[in-house]
Simulated scan of single mutants.
Amino acid sequence: MGGQAVVSAIAGTGFQILFSELLKMGLKVQKNNSQFKSSLERLQKMLEEMAPNITRIGSFNRELEQPKQLERLQGLLSDGKDLVLKCSKIHKYNCLKRPLYNKKLLKLEKDIRDHINIVSQFQEVADTKEILVKQNWTLVGLNNVSSGVKQLSDQVSSGVAQSSDETIS
């Protein structure tokens, strides 16, 4: 299944477990309870589409030692798992709870999407600033090397000039 490939791509064990459980539960509820099928399909599709970006952000966060950036997403996935579990227990003829839980599923989808968008925007700003800082360090390093080479060249030139003056006299 497509969900299984995505599960293995999610960054970190915590995400992998939550994501896997959410997808499995969502698929189970879709099969057993068609009243939430469209909402769960949208949620599943959104998560699968966002998985590569989540993976990318998670791997960069590990490299940069910023693991807390996706904690809220982990909380949202956990809440989603609980919500899907509740949806699975609603009988298909319960007309009172069905719209309420469909609305909750839509809110969960929106919250996850909004959080990912915010994290992505901050990640882009942080990446850009990190690139600029590294570029600045590189330029400073190149200037230091360049001035060092110039000093060495001047010393070699003055040493050659002194030795030629000494050989002439």
Rank of each mutant, 00 (worst) to 15 (best):
Y101W: 12
Y101T: 03
Y101G: 07
N102K: 15
N102I: 13
K104A: 06
K104L: 09
L105Q: 03
L105G: 01
L106E: 15
L106Q: 14
L106I: 09
K107R: 11
K107T: 14
K107P: 01
L108G: 01
E109A: 04
I112F: 00
I112P: 00
D114M: 02
H115A: 01
H115Y: 04
I116D: 01
I116F: 04
I116C: 05
I116Q: 02
I118H: 11
V119R: 01
V119H: 02
V119C: 02
V119L: 06
S120Q: 09
S120A: 10
S120D: 08
Q121P: 00
Q121I: 06
F122V: 00
F122R: 04
Q123Y: 05
Q123G: 01
Q123E: 12
E124K: 15
V125D: 05
V125W: 00
V125R: 07
V125Q: 07
V125I: 15
V125A: 04
V125Y: 04
A126N: 09
D127H: 06
T128S: 11
T128R: 14
K129P: 00
E130C: 02
E130K: 06
E130I: 03
I131H: 12
I131W: 14
I131V: 13
L132D: 12
L132Q: 14
L132R: 12
L132G: 03
V133W: 08
V133H: 10
V133C: 03
V133S: 05
V133L: 12
Q135L: 10
Q135F: 07
Q135E: 12
N136F: 13
N136Y: 14
N136V: 10
W137R: 15
W137T: 09
T138D: 07
T138H: 08
